[in-house]
Write a protein that binds this DNA or RNA. Structure first.
Lengths: 153, 153
DNA sequence: TGACATATTCTGCATATCCAGAATATTGAT
DNA sequence: ATCAATATTCTGGATATGCAGAATATGTCA
């Protein structure tokens, strides 16, 4: 049953997880593929994806590329065959690195220019805002960067 | 110059910050209003916004509502006048509460159902994933919830 | 080289989003 | 009650996104 059609529970799980992932505005097909990969024990081909998720193969390809791009999935190049396989990414923090980096850039931007665009209380508010962004970046990176799995609290 | 037209530096800052905010897929007008509010020392009216940001008043209204909805801006109701004023929100973490909450829900969803949708290594990967989400939620909330400004690191 | 399997790109379409300006509603003053 | 000022909602259009299926490209084996 690892590769055949999915069970109702599996389908429900995939859809529910995709619903939550939409909060990150991840496309529907990519979100469902994300949940699918998480529950698979072996690498899956585009045909597996298309069949189990009931989407066209071209969209399976596109969704897989999206996840690969974001670091949510890894592609296994094959020798001796053209078939590509995908597995869940081993570093769940990878997709968030860019966001953390953006936080840092916002902090820098605000810090660097606050004196030339604001005065008085606004300038102080902006200093606080930059500090907040920096603190959030640091907090996220403490969880994201290590690359080792974390234990739940 | 607190209310008149903006200086070139201010315009540039607003646009640069809005560019970064697009990473959170915030609409352009709302993102620019966000930067505008941060640099203002006094509450601004919709007319101020429309004039300084060079957008229609209806969109100024919409953008303000978006920010208010997300907790990025606060509206000041007036007595004796119909005019509404907006100021930058005093809690920069407010917009991220929902995301942190979603992280928690993902952790719960995965924990609750992993046993019914996956076996073996996949089940363990999902346990690790849930732990990661929970850890990230905790890290974010440590910065977000306190409501006091943070100092930069 | 030829035939086949597979991945990828292309095209069209349906949908959602965002914006501007017009139209409408709501509030305060006279 | 009426008017003036303001906020809000309503239309339309332009743009972007995501999807399916067809068409194309690429690699593998005989």
């Amino acid at each position: 049953m690892s590769k055949g059609n999915l069970s109702p529970e599996q389908r429900r799980f995939i859809d529910d997880l995709a619903g939550l992932l939409s909060a990150w505005s991840m496309p529907g097909n990519a979100a469902r593929l994300y949940g699918y990969l998480q529950m698979m024990n072996e690498p899956v081909s585009l045909d597996d994806i298309a069949r189990d998720l009931e989407i066209s193969k071209s969209n399976a390809c596109t969704a897989a590329k999206v996840l690969e791009e974001h670091g949510n999935a890894r592609r296994l190049g094959e020798r001796g065959t053209k078939r590509v396989f995908y597995v869940a990414g081993d570093d769940p923090g990878a997709p968030l690195r860019k966001q953390a980096q953006t936080l840092g850039r916002m902090a820098e931007l605000i810090t660097a220019r606050k004196a030339s665009v604001a005065t008085g209380a606004a300038r102080e508010r902006m200093a606080g805002l930059a500090g907040f962004h920096k603190a959030l970046q640091n907090a996220m990176e403490a969880v994201i960067l290590p690359e080792r799995r974390q234990d739940a609290a």
